[in-house]
Amino acid sequence: MNLLKYLLYLGCMAKNEQMEYEISTMALLKHFNIDVEYLGDEACCGVPAKNFDKSAWLISSARLLALASQKNGAILSLCTGCDLSFEETSHILRENDVLRENIQEALDIIGLEYDKNIKRVHIFDLIYDDIGIKRLSQAVERDISHLKTACYYGCHAIRTPDLHRLDDSEAPTKMEEVIEAIGGQTEDYPERLMCCMGPNLSFDPKPVLNNVGSIIDAIKNRGFNLLSVICPYCFKTFSLKPFPVLYLTSLIGYAVGLDPNSLGMRLNRSPIEKIIPELAELLIEEF
């Protein structure tokens, strides 16, 4: 039995501009009767501060982890970048006692205590480990065999190998297993471990667009008609190109029979109505 409760932490991207991820996650977890509540503090995980001061990054992440342990739960992130930040922080602070004491001194000021046994979990862990392949395949209500899905993990979900990540860093298979369980088609392709270059979007967009363009071209040429992602940065970069992109949570939600509107698919600006007929009908009706 899992006694920990899940405390949802959205991260800047998911909460401020990628609301589809949050809406579809909540709908999916409700469908599978998994209780989740909000962590109650949506301050940044600190990764942007990593460029300027390492301890500022560690304090920001450790603060959120300490907050979750104070509420006696595991921190559940949607963004793989936030999730990696929590994993890296807890790894560093577990190994380095001196650093942990320094960080604790900063947390003492705001009355928080860092527990080195704190648990972090990503929504993908929850789908794969808690819901599980068997329950997913039993819950399927809609036929999605016409969707040939390209699985895109995103860098922070799988690297680095010495940290506890969602899947293997060079040959991940879990997302493919999930897609097959819900009745979709998928296959291996060389570009699936590429980087979307999302972090450079604000600073140097031209090479980023070239990069996603070439990945999307390769995916199209291999006969895929959908891209499935689990990172808000990957979603943001790929949805700049006219090719259907869905969060894995939305895709599973669709396969288990949830209404596209309740999965937030209207917020998805990529051309998914080409492959999701229910959504196309909905849009025509309203028109």
Binding site: M19, D41, E42, D53, A56, I109, I110
Partner: peptide, 25 residues
């Protein structure tokens, strides 16, 4: 977020800044 019926995000900026004042940031 409001029109979609999602809860307004709570951000404890003061708490974060207090903890970060111990650094060089």
């Amino acid at each position: 977020r409001q029109t979609l019926g999602l809860p307004a995000p709570v951000v404890d900026t003061e708490g974060l800044r207090k903890a970060l004042k111990t650094t060089k940031l």
